[in-house]
Nucleic acid binder design. Structure first.
Lengths: 330, 330
DNA sequence: CTGAAAGCGCTTACAG
DNA sequence: CTGAAAGCGCTTACAG
């Protein structure tokens, strides 16, 4: 009742192990008759190749990796990554190695190790930073990779991204069209590339607009909002870099007696059940993260099969107006 | 610039490959002097063992697996799993294979394959069902496993769980003490073991209390709430099986003009930022899922090192009263 | 087109 | 205590 190996197949099919290997992998070198015989024996035996042995003989590891360098305890709130992972797996038949680390150094170390150990065939790079050291690392390692969310700064790596800048511009235009003059932005982690891109787009579309830096948590989102609403020039609209901060901001507004949307319009970058379920429901930039993950998976598959680097733009997040935004009433 | 193998170490240390292996793994068979020499050569060479080769020679795969059999697109809302995974990894130095599948059959198939391929040393079983077929499967396979969240129905497997029943009882007692007579429950997936446990505890604590079955999504949570609030005997309190449904329920109440908490008290099983951020913030059962994951990881580590099966009870979720619950006013 | 052999990097009996 | 060898299950040149 041991699991069958190519040796067993070879014996029953009356050929050599090498021939079995060639037949199983659809490679030339065996006659069609032999191949068919091998295949039928294999399936009758319920044969499944050992990915371990395969990886050792320097073929594929049949696995890809994704490492998340964010404080583990804050990860739960980020539904983005789970959606992304689910989308990736819908498209990928191989295993996904997922690791949560607490520093960029640990992340770099992990790529080295995974690659050295033949544990993965390739990796997804997320949370791209400006001049991200991971890009030259995987390039020099020769580790196949797809940069998820990096428009620019991804060297010669294949990249899949959405146009944050355009999305941000659409939000600001929308607010301007509602008559808003003082628009503020509560931004995500400053070190992330997309934060920089959104900052720039925001500045360009809303010259003089205030940007307060935060970190995606409800605490910092609330604090930033309090700062903005109690300041000298109170904004009439705030654009948040994620759903959690936007909801926390709405809470602070309520607490301070600032009516939403009458006195303050709120927009969230990245939609979620959270945005839809609260009152008033939040206007948000929505996108299909699941599909985005699937696209990233296809891109990595292409890289693994030797395709040259590509740069794929995903659909731009779409603004979904809800009750948290309105015409300025002053 | 190839990575060093035990052969390289053996050459430089002037010993055999076998001796290197023994020395590196801290096993008897080599003198202390030899061991030290080997270790110092290894570290000077920056040696790292190939987990692939190690797995092939039937040692450990240095990885554990977790498969999630839930509709991928709904996973994003479940912060529970991400917290759990983060907690697991905080305690576990090995790799985690994560796979999202869409059927129980696929899940079973995956365990078979992982184990046959020597891809994992053990697995975490989550979302335990009543008479779960995975339990006899991994037992017969001899696949080391830890059942997460299964109190009962986990055969001879090690299990880590929280006392859902006690938690549910505490919620109902709390509501009864506030004077509530008609308490309802919006339950999660009926097939899950903890749903059954909570159902039973609810029935026992609130005889005659209505239970409506749902599936953790905001849609079903809203529908169940609508059903309850427009029915003949409107409940004065509803206990939801997760945060998303509770928030959706609060939305429906607002829509129907049912005041929370004056006319309706709401409690969520499982706390989250969602519960804290909305208005009124929801009374919830809170627990440290990150710590729960860490505990599960330690349990699996123990199983892997040959410990006999244990049954560990995690801390019972604690009720955190917030503004969504109040004395009955009728 | 096919077979026999070497090799991937380890671990593990088995002799000395 | 140590060395030489076999074996894990594949793949891949290399001969026939």
């Amino acid at each position: 009742m041991k699991r069958p190996t190519i040796k067993d197949i070879a014996t029953r099919a009356g050929v050599s192990k090498g021939a079995v290997s060639l037949a199983l992998n659809g490679r030339p070198g065996v006659s069609d008759a032999t191949r068919e015989r091998v295949l039928s024996v294999a399936s009758s035996l319920g044969y499944r190749p050992s990915s371990t042995a395969r990886a050792l003989s320097s073929a594929s590891a049949d696995a890809v990796g994704l490492v998340l360098a964010r404080p583990a305890r804050t990860l739960g709130a980020e539904s983005f990554f789970f959606q992304l992972i689910a989308g990736i797996q819908a498209e990928l038949s191989m295993a996904l190695l997922l690791q949560v680390v607490d520093s960029h150094e640990a992340e770099i170390e992990l790529y080295r190790r995974w690659w050295a150990e033949h544990r993965v065939d390739g990796v997804f790079l997320v949370d791209l930073r400006v001049d991200d050291p991971r890009v030259p690392l995987v390039e020099s390692l020769g580790l196949p990779a797809v940069v998820v969310g990096g428009a620019g700064h991804h060297g010669n790596l294949t990249s899949v991204w959405a146009d944050d800048a355009k999305a941000m511009t659409s939000v600001v235009s929308y607010l301007l069209s509602l008559g808003h003059k003082r628009i503020a932005r509560v931004a995500g982690l400053p070190s992330l590339l997309h934060t920089a891109r959104r900052d720039a787009a925001f500045q360009a579309a809303a010259p003089g607009g205030v940007i307060v830096s935060a970190d995606y948590t409800d605490e910092r989102g609330a604090a930033a909002t309090r700062e903005l609403l109690t300041g000298a020039q109170r904004p009439t609209a705030i654009v948040y870099d994620n759903d959690v901060m936007a909801v926390a901001g709405a809470g602070v507004a309520a607490e301070l007696g600032v009516a939403v949307p009458a006195e303050l319009s709120i927009v969230a970058f990245d939609d979620s059940p959270l945005c839809r379920l609260i009152h008033p429901p939040l206007t948000a930039l929505t996108r299909d993260t699941f599909a985005f993950g699937a696209r990233a998976a296809r891109a990595l598959l292409a890289v693994l099969s030797g395709a040259r680097p590509t740069d794929t733009e995903d659909t731009t997040p779409v603004l979904v107006p809800r009750a948290s935004t309105a015409q300025i009433s002053s």
